[in-house]
Design a protein around this nucleic acid. Structure first.
Length: 276
DNA sequence: AAATATACCTGACTGC
DNA sequence: TGCAGTCAGGTATATT
């Protein structure tokens, strides 16, 4: 399930072989993703060079001189670079063929992902209301502290809100809160300044380490080169219900917050009341 | 307005 | 063996 590290891993895997290659032909096999794939992509992309592959939040942005192709992997999406075209299989929904013969293939069993087009004139609506990138200085303990004052939701729900900070999905939210020793149910407005600073540092560290490991492969994530991610070996709490905490040995607990599985150590992560 | 729930989708798994 | 039921999860959108 691609979170920011998986998307970043994918970005790097695509950029390397495809940068400056020229789009030739687009094949759409199944347009029904989260939103329909535009049927006029050939018109926009044909003969255009791929200038760069960028990323904003979990959106991949394939830049051309006339606009950008926006790709989101949803929950089960995957992009691969094939040296040459091969017959598509089940769940292969789109192929982007390049002039050198390479094929960028989009596969997505659950079809929660998206492939959209944005001309160069305006920022696409999906990208307009996003919070800061987690690995930039714009995301700081100070800014998080200010934002948490305004709302009263469990802190885990809060950091997974893309208006607050982008790229923190369900796995890394639990991991970051464990690293910062903050209880996932602590109300956002009750976090202390110090807790906010620890949490921001933890989120940055978790994401950086996960990117270094090539992402987390729980089941179905593979990079554009076909390699799994190895961060699952470093997961301290996610998926470890009833297993001993790596820090204190107490059994890890699983609860549901915002309809999402949440893992934490009840001994290491204790709710604190913030000074008002 | 903010908080919470729902919808979208399929594969893997569980229990009868 | 098969089938119904449950779960997983990103995020826009609907509902409370």
């Amino acid at each position: 399930m691609p979170e920011l590290p998986e998307v970043e891993t994918t970005r790097r895997g695509i950029q390397k072989p495809l940068k400056n290659q020229v789009f030739s032909k687009i094949h759409i096999y199944q347009p029904k993703l989260r939103w329909p794939i535009p049927n006029d992509l050939n018109h926009f992309l044909s003969k255009q060079p791929l200038l760069a592959v960028k990323r904003r939040a979990k959106y991949l942005l394939l830049e051309t001189p006339v606009g950008q192709l926006i790709i989101h992997l949803g929950m089960s999406g995957r992009l691969r670079v094939l040296p040459t075209y091969l017959t598509p299989e089940k769940h292969d929904h789109a192929d982007f063929i390049f002039a050198n013969g390479a094929c960028l293939r989009y596969t997505d069993p659950r079809r929660f992902g998206a492939i959209l087009w944005s001309d160069g004139n305006t920022l696409h609506p999906l990208l307009q209301k996003l919070g800061p990138e987690p690995l930039t200085v714009q995301f700081s303990g100070d800014s998080l502290y200010q934002q948490t004052r305004l709302r009263k939701v469990p802190i885990k729900t809060f950091i997974m809100d893309s208006h607050v900070v982008v790229g923190v999905g369900n796995i890394y939210a639990s991991e970051a809160l464990f690293l910062a020793r903050i209880h996932p149910q602590q109300q956002s407005h009750q976090l202390t300044k110090l807790q906010c600073e620890k949490l921001v540092a933890a989120i940055k560290q978790i994401l950086k380490n996960a990117i270094l490991a090539g992402g987390t492969t729980l089941k179905d994530f593979y990079s554009a080169e076909g390699k799994p991610g190895f961060f699952s070996l470093q997961l301290a709490v996610y998926g470890r219900e009833k297993l001993p905490c790596v820090h204190c040995k107490q059994a890890i607990q699983k609860i549901v917050l915002g309809q999402r599985s949440t893992f934490f150590c009840g001994k290491c992560q204790v709710i604190k009341r913030g000074a008002k």
